[in-house]
Design a protein around this nucleic acid. Structure first.
Lengths: 108, 108
DNA sequence: GGGTTATATCGATTTTTGTCGATATGTGAA
DNA sequence: TTCACATATCGACAAAAATCGATATAACCC
């Protein structure tokens, strides 16, 4: 998997309302899947699918204990994602005047 | 559009490799569409579609000048998105011991 | 005006993603 | 060892998103 594919994977995980709702629930601490299921309006298999996507993105960790699976936010990966997003959207020094098409400046 | 829909829209915009490539190109400053088209491996109509998604997310601004459209990163919205992501992934105080299913704690 | 260029929009198609119900897996309890 | 429960996986389908080629729009140049 390329670097950009990995980054896209993280943001894709964040780009779904159900998964955002799950993250908000996890903000108050680790939760087992059954609790999440009570609060999110999708079926059990669908929730399981969303949790897999969140875990595979790295933003969430899963811990099994007996019958239950506990999910929690992974703040380390969250911080990494923040840094990536910040890097992507900073305004670098950009004093150029582009009144003409910038294609004029390209290398062919 | 709900709050979560808006947030999902921003992260969806970031969850595509072509759009990530465009953002990386825009890091070095405003670019017109034709320059982006030279460097990204999609057709012209597809690029236009991606740029619309980026602009509608707020992460990118569009400025028309004659025949050309210039795109640039919007660092204000970028910072907002960072803040949202940080809020979503912080580790709040979480001293609870979840050795039993946390459903035991729920309100029915 | 007529041609050329840059970009946007449209319509069709393909690919990806979300959803569900059914079933499988694995655990603890009776 | 059988049962109930929690979760994961599977297969099918529906919805959303990406892509393309064709065409529309709009600006510039001759």
């Amino acid at each position: 998997m390329t670097e950009n594919q990995n980054i896209a994977k993280i943001f894709k995980a964040l780009g779904d309302e159900t998964r955002l709702a799950v993250l908000k629930l996890l903000q108050s601490g680790e939760k087992c899947a059954c609790v999440l299921l009570d609060r999110v309006f999708v079926g059990q298999s669908t929730l399981s699918h969303h949790m897999k996507i969140l875990v595979e993105s790295g933003l969430v960790t899963a811990r099994k204990n007996g019958k239950w699976t506990y999910y929690a936010i992974n703040p380390i990966e969250g911080e990494k994602a923040c840094q990536i997003l910040r890097d992507l959207t900073v305004k670098l020094d950009d004093g150029v005047d582009y009144n003409a098409c910038c294609r004029d400046d390209r290398e062919d």
